[in-house]
Design a protein around this nucleic acid. Structure first.
Lengths: 348, 348
DNA sequence: TTGGCGAGTGTAAGCGCTTACATATTCCCA
DNA sequence: TGGGAATATGTAAGCGCTTACACTCGCCAA
């Protein structure tokens, strides 16, 4: 089938023949133009253009042992959480002549591992990964091949791995303190599954830590784990509202869940924040589009992407792993967070 | 730097030696396991596992002339428009053992062309492209290499190119008729740049056609072109509201713009739909999260992605380009669309 | 004049893999 | 019991490219 391929895709040998030079000269024109005389080079370039020649990437990678390609494995492309940071990552890479290959793991550790292997087999020179949690065989494999892997969207003090991120636990603890300061004592939490998602786990830990520090009883915290989707956020919110005592504030593991919670509140005719407060995490665009606008933890996505790219670039050049970088987050106070209702109606 | 690479990345020869067989047998274990005896295979597999061997993708592609990889170039990853369809596309591909490589073009034709060439050089077996509009050299190049390219997110009757999409113009015309039926006569439009985006252009054309069919004067249509972003939608909405006569309905080229428009309306203390109606296109998740919920054209994203994958798969197998497929869209009536205000206040 | 040098170019050896073909082994039936 | 088919495995060519090394040539200092 489609055997017209046969002779119509030009190789470097075709170009060499057409230009009356050797394949080495053609190769040099492409990779080190200043090492060939101008007249020769022009002839070669003309032949390349005439034939529509494109170097075969696989062959090139096979011998050059460098692909100028970076791989990234993100949990999902379906929501905007990683989009902006990844965009900045890609832009910075492109400026330096590198290409980005993206794969998604659907928040599944086994799939992430597959995708990483796949990218490595494709010869990526470096890797961007989300969070710390993964089988350690991946790190071993990278080390063996001399591939630098950098972690983003997370930073845990004391961890030696190269990372450009923020302290999920501390950021969420800070937000929790604000919630408590307003007088809330019954706090509900909607989180992504904490089993295989260390960012989600750290965020919940941050909430627990802040509650503990404030002397709140552990049983005043209601946690619902669910998947990262708007509908899931809505369902989880309903579940929390059915509990006794009913939470006066619902803190969500990210903005997507929070938006689902707000929608559910609207459908339940609960006023936000008069009847119940809702908070998010990430500060993606949707946070200022929803009514009421969402109080959330702002994450410097673009800066994170850019700095992760720079760190990786540097690692590639120097051969030494970059030092971890902690980025600051801050809280964006918007309408969805307020004091608890005066009558605490602790029973639904 | 990192020259530990040297002997520590195992090749097929290392595996062969470790298992006491030839490289051909190792290769067969991987590519046609039933052509080697069970005992031999087990030894080979054990050696592979012990050494942590991964076939080098470039070398494999070089000789096999097939990569089992499909490339997709989408305009942007930043918003959710393409996310769901692409996800379905990928899932269907994965089920069949193919890998997806995604690149983004930022809605720029020159970048799209670069990305396509890049993907082709990487040896993709097939391509998913958005919309019809691009330099024809791309089609030529694909034909020469026997690469099947399939168009999605658009379907134009009479066009021969393989496509799985919907009729942007007809869909928008249908929505426009509903707007007109409610009594609106002053219609504003917020569109993405129509210069290099044929879907955006067709949508605006659909609106014009419906207005013309209803006997509306051409000057009752106010079009603002902007970029695909929530903020841009907000700004464009403000601009439209400043015009005289002021539109009673604002039709947006997609949901992202519409959401920006709704936010701007809220900030301007305009009630939607009592003071002004707003419609979208795409029916992404945000449409049911915004308040008021958005009346929009529902696009079967997942089905489109799945069917595009199936069409491509079939093309790969049979070698013949698949016939174009038109998918139906329908209108989701929600709160953002209502009759025009009784007092038309045609002046701001 | 001669030797040496540098610049420009060519020759050819692989990179890691698949696969056509050759070879070895087994098994069945005449 | 022998011949040939069927099965299992090995040998080696070559995919398209880069690059070490060899070669040629013109130039200048000795």
């Amino acid at each position: 089938m489609t055997d017209q391929k046969d002779k119509s895709v030009p190789t470097i040998a075709d170009v060499a023949r057409a230009a009356g030079v050797s394949t080495a000269t053609v190769s040099r024109c492409l990779n080190a133009p200043d090492r060939v005389q101008k007249a020769t080079r022009q002839q070669v370039m003309a032949a390349i253009a005439r034939l529509g020649y494109t170097p075969n990437f696989g062959a090139r990678a096979l011998v050059a042992r460098r692909t100028n390609t970076i791989g990234a494995v993100i949990p999902t492309m379906e929501n905007a959480i990683f989009a902006r940071g990844l965009q900045a990552f890609q832009e910075t890479l492109n400026e330096r002549g590198l290409t980005l290959l993206v794969a998604s793991s659907q928040y599944r550790q086994d799939l992430e591992e597959d995708q990483v292997r796949n990218l490595i087999a494709r010869g990526v020179d470096g890797l961007l990964l989300i969070g710390y949690q993964r089988s350690e065989s991946i790190a071993l494999e990278c080390a063996r091949r001399g591939i630098h892997a950098i972690i983003a969207w997370a930073f845990e003090p004391g961890r030696p791995q190269p990372a450009v991120g923020f302290d999920n636990s501390a950021a969420m603890a800070a937000l929790t303190r604000e919630v408590l300061a307003l007088g809330h004592r019954q706090v509900g939490v909607i989180s992504a599954g904490t089993g295989s998602n260390d960012r989600a786990r750290k965020r919940v830990e941050g909430i627990r830590a802040a509650l503990r520090a404030a002397g709140c009883a552990a049983d005043s915290l209601h946690v619902v784990e669910t998947t990262y989707a708007i509908d899931a956020g809505s369902a989880a919110f309903r579940e929390l509202m059915a509990r006794t005592p009913r939470p006066t504030a619902v803190m969500c593991g990210n903005d997507v869940l929070a938006v689902g919670a707000i929608r559910a509140a609207r459908q339940m005719r609960l006023r936000v924040p008069q009847d119940v407060s809702i908070t998010g995490f990430d500060d993606i665009e949707i946070a200022t589009v929803i009514d009421p606008e969402l109080t959330t933890v702002h994450v410097p996505h673009r800066e994170m992407g850019r700095r992760a790219a720079l760190a990786l670039l540097e690692a590639l050049e120097t051969g030494t792993p970059p030092a971890p970088v902690e980025l600051a987050t801050d809280i964006r106070f918007r309408a969805s967070l307020g004091p608890p209702p005066p009558d605490p109606r602790t029973t639904a």
